[in-house]
Design a protein around this nucleic acid. Sequence first.
DNA 1: CCCGGGATCAACCCTTTGGTTGATGGCGCC
DNA 2: GGCGCCATCAACCAAAGGGTTGATCCCGGG
Lengths: 210, 210
Amino acid sequence: MSAPIRLMLADDHPVVRAGLRALLATEPGLEVIGEAATAEEAIALCARERVDVVLMDLQFGAGMPGVEATAALTARPGGPRVLVLTTYDSEADILAAVEAGASGYLLKDAPPEELVAAVRAAAAGGSALAPAVAHRLIDRVRAPGITLSRREIEVLQLVAEGLSNQQISRRLSLSQATVKTHLVHVYGKLGVDSRTAAVAAARARGLIRR
Amino acid sequence: MSAPIRLMLADDHPVVRAGLRALLATEPGLEVIGEAATAEEAIALCARERVDVVLMDLQFGAGMPGVEATAALTARPGGPRVLVLTTYDSEADILAAVEAGASGYLLKDAPPEELVAAVRAAAAGGSALAPAVAHRLIDRVRAPGITLSRREIEVLQLVAEGLSNQQISRRLSLSQATVKTHLVHVYGKLGVDSRTAAVAAARARGLIRR
DNA sequence: CCCGGGATCAACCCTTTGGTTGATGGCGCC
DNA sequence: GGCGCCATCAACCAAAGGGTTGATCCCGGG
């Protein structure tokens, strides 16, 4: 047989780390060689030890966000494969993680077998999307009506952060007219007629960060 | 010595259940006698078995929310003590949980010792608030400026769900004038000047549900 | 007992947003 | 090359939201 898969767990919740360790350590061919409570720790640990697969949370309480760490880890050749493991299946997060070089995107409510399968797939060089995540992406492709363009999401995200149209226009170096146009398009796509309703709908659909 | 403390874990995430089991099962005097993936299961299990302490999540993917289950479990005499264990320290959630009869409110990013201490305290008939949670409540008492009244929170929550002033007034059987008054007060307390900014600020401060 | 804060409403005015129409330029795709 | 989508902007009107003042009622605490 080949050498065991060397795993690292990066999550700020001790409970989650313990759970992953418990679920994965008993699997044959897997070996949990380290844990990190912050993204910075995770990077440092990968620099010291050979790691095959990192299970990476996206939201850390403080410090570097998980996406950045993912990008940093996957950027170097010979670096570990990164599986993102998070609570939310926000479309924005999924796309950002994949762009950052993640080999897969898993949800914390996934059954253990799914998790193990994903780790093995990642170690073997493949990709792994949790069924729920894959479903969301397929929905996105299948339902072109609820596809927001990059710019539209950008504007909507700022609305969600409480900015007015004028503030958004300044932040993005646009005219207010353009901001309004984007928002009107968003309203049409989401089937709503106000900025607050658009934020609520987009949140519910996972189109923007929470 | 006395009999071991009989524990039940109620959380929809297998990873979290495994983590709690791993962290708690090794503790002397604690015995994890069951797990539930839904609030309904938790209630059923408590009806069949004697349970001293339930570790209860607040958000279940589907079905009955954790607060309701907490209320149902603590309502009967001789029922178990319930420790709420959740990811968010939203003020609204904390107050709702305590009102529902929870003996404590813990965060999933708490260190294991804190968790164990809380379980023992609850079993002994005491209460346990995670330091972070206690801090939030103390802040609330100390800073009366950011205290929203019950009605103000209610209105703001509906704003966050995307309703217009008119829809809110109908939902709560009020005049639009009253809704506006509540919101103006909220803006003043939060130091903002629009409904979307108020929602963002309240979310950041954990005043409303996410 | 009175004061303060919460909750309720009205009338007013001004600003922001929403809705429409229309126009331009770029980019990818058939 | 043309068609469609994205991104950008303008002008305009109608509607909703925001700000102010002021008023009533109820309740609980000093």
